[in-house]
Simulated scan of single mutants.
Amino acid sequence: MTDRLDTQIPYWDAAAATKTFTHPLHLPWLEGISRQAAILDYGCGYGRTMDELQQHGFRDLTGADISPAMIERAQHLHPAMHFTTLDTPPSLPSQDADFDVVLLFAVLTCVPGDEAQRRLIAELYRVLKPGGVLYVSDLLLQDDEGNRGRYDRYATVNGGQGDVSYGVFQTGDGAVCRHHSREWLTALLADFEGIGTRTVTVSTMNGNESTGIQIMARKPALT
């Protein structure tokens, strides 16, 4: 996979004004988190999840996204919140151990390459405090004929250009996305301690109902 496919900034800039994101916050998972916790929403889009967090009393919120147009929309909708555009993703302008919680909602699906996903998770591990929490919400491999067909089509057309993991596909409007096996997500988060996993049904950005997964994991505390 190329860096271009693992960012796709022109696509997200063009989509910024029209897309709606729907992955839900599971509030019981947040009950034990201080309302003063420093929270990063990586891939914040237009700030939807940050707004919901604020409504539930969280105040130390930072949003980061690769798309300048998404950040512009977020700042327009939520002028009192703090947002930053990432110039060299996944690198964050943050010190080590800056955050108590990191949210990663529907971001891995937008990063099709294995190595790019590993770099992203490593960066989030870096900025989390020991004992801090990573909350992932993403999409699983779908088992219907339509999705299996587009996984196969993408692999057939693009497999000669490098490794293409099963589950990568192209949407009708041109984005290259990825659905994940549970085994891959477990391996990707191997440096974290699992807290909870739940299966959810979500509407994708293009309005298709899909099976998703939410994972809560903890960076090991210092011993």
Rank of each mutant, 00 (worst) to 15 (best):
S165V: 08
A175E: 09
A116D: 07
Y125V: 01
N147I: 00
M216I: 10
Y154Q: 03
G196S: 15
L141R: 15
L134M: 11
S203N: 09
Y125D: 10
A122E: 14
I195H: 03
L139M: 14
N147M: 13
T186N: 14
K129Y: 05
I121E: 04
S181G: 13
Y166I: 08
G174Y: 09
Q117C: 14
G159A: 12
V157H: 07
D191E: 15
I121T: 06
S210V: 14
N206E: 14
T186V: 07
K129E: 10
R182N: 04
N206A: 06
C177H: 05
I213R: 08
E123I: 03
P220A: 05
I121N: 02
A217I: 05
E193W: 01
T171C: 03
F192C: 11
G131V: 08
R198H: 05
V107L: 08
T211R: 15
T156F: 02
V202W: 12
D152S: 12
E193C: 14
E209F: 02
V111W: 08
V133A: 08
V168C: 04
N147D: 12
Q117T: 07
G132R: 09
F105R: 04
L188A: 10
S210I: 04
L108N: 08
Y135G: 01
D152G: 07
K219V: 05
R126V: 04
A155M: 11
L108V: 08
R118I: 06
E115W: 05
Q214Y: 02
A116H: 11
V157L: 14
N158D: 01
D173R: 14
M205G: 00
V133I: 15
R153T: 07
D152C: 04
G207K: 13
R182Y: 01
G207Y: 13
N208D: 13
